[in-house]
Design a protein around this nucleic acid. Sequence first.
DNA 1: CAATCCAGTCACAAACGCGTCACACCCTTG
DNA 2: CAAGGGTGTGACGCGTTTGTGACTGGATTG
Lengths: 224, 224
Amino acid sequence: MDVVNIFLTSELGESLEDFVHDQRRFTFDRLGPEGPRRLVEGPMWAFVDWVMPELAGLEMCRRLRADTRTADAHVTMVLEEDDPEDRRRALRAGADDYVIGPLTRTAVLDRVLALQSRGVERQATRRFELGALTIDMAALQARWNEQPIVLRPNEFRLLRFLAENPNRVLTREDLINGLGKREPPIDERTVDVWIGRLRRAIKAAGGGNPLRTVRSLGYVFDLS
Amino acid sequence: MDVVNIFLTSELGESLEDFVHDQRRFTFDRLGPEGPRRLVEGPMWAFVDWVMPELAGLEMCRRLRADTRTADAHVTMVLEEDDPEDRRRALRAGADDYVIGPLTRTAVLDRVLALQSRGVERQATRRFELGALTIDMAALQARWNEQPIVLRPNEFRLLRFLAENPNRVLTREDLINGLGKREPPIDERTVDVWIGRLRRAIKAAGGGNPLRTVRSLGYVFDLS
DNA sequence: CAATCCAGTCACAAACGCGTCACACCCTTG
DNA sequence: CAAGGGTGTGACGCGTTTGTGACTGGATTG
């Protein structure tokens, strides 16, 4: 059984260490602005307080996601009261779920054990942040400045592939292959339609146009 | 450390009280048809005899689960002999495990201590709150804003699994595996029917639709 | 300036994916 | 053993998605 690594922004860690000391199935680490103090392997859970001494919880959340060491962590946001708006903000910042505080020892363990025992394999939760654009691979959702972009499956795949290769001209052939379309062979001109649809979707979410056309070659995802 | 409350349907309690009297970590209570005599806090263990003077053990078991005061209790059924059929019946009635009788003082304490140190797991998966939705593992009941949702066993498991993995797309395969259905292999399209039935049940309880379809991929439990 | 080339867009038909229903087969209960 | 509820499955229908051809206008080239 893997060791479960639990990160907390509050002082609860030491108390928990006593509580489950004999089990040797958990490690606890205080989570500061610079992230976890040690590098760890195995599943990670982070409990982030809404208000923190040095850093806002939402910002902490974003940092965890941006940090490759902790991008896979399951992040639970600890809210002080049940404000729907806060909940949404937490989730948008990258939290996986939330609890209404204050955080107790049992709440932590309940949560971790419950999710761990039944949870699906936590695939690398890649989360791209490219300027105003955010792509959440777990929820399969894209946003422009927190505003959700309504995408059809193919459009999402296209955006993802483009975002994975920013600042690089991708030919129509690249894109067709990148989306894994082999059978039946796709007409290259179809890519133009894909791009058009994707642009329209981003625009509908109030976004700009990060997709630049490179005449006679292909398209670039412009990061600037 | 919390006090552990032990309920017994047999007379063993007084004997135990002497046995561990000095430790002050346990309370003992005789369990009659009307449930425990006093209200308690903290972890609860109940040992229910298969045959009881006034009430069948199975019925006792069900009552414990139905009673909100004891829904969280860890229920151990005391069987007289090792009948596989009885074991299954006990578990179905809501027991967490069983011992083959007769029950002795040491058996009780061994059991409680063993389970308690092995993990808080028993308590862990007991209760869940996600926005308007409450899932009570012990009572096997879900509610939407206090309004009970009438669920069949499979629907309950589905809801539980979805709720344990919020905000992430679960493929039909994930869901089938998550419910532990390997044999016989389940048709993926069947999941659609599960979802449909679950949605209808939630709606019938006046709930919204937290289950979002992600076309060509799967479903998400939307927490927001 | 004319001839090309190329990309953006539209409309449409085919394919696809999902929700739902009815039915058959359990397994349980009395 | 009969009755009833829970569950998996095939089938049907509808809405959505998607690839394509055609048209248009702007850019490029000689």
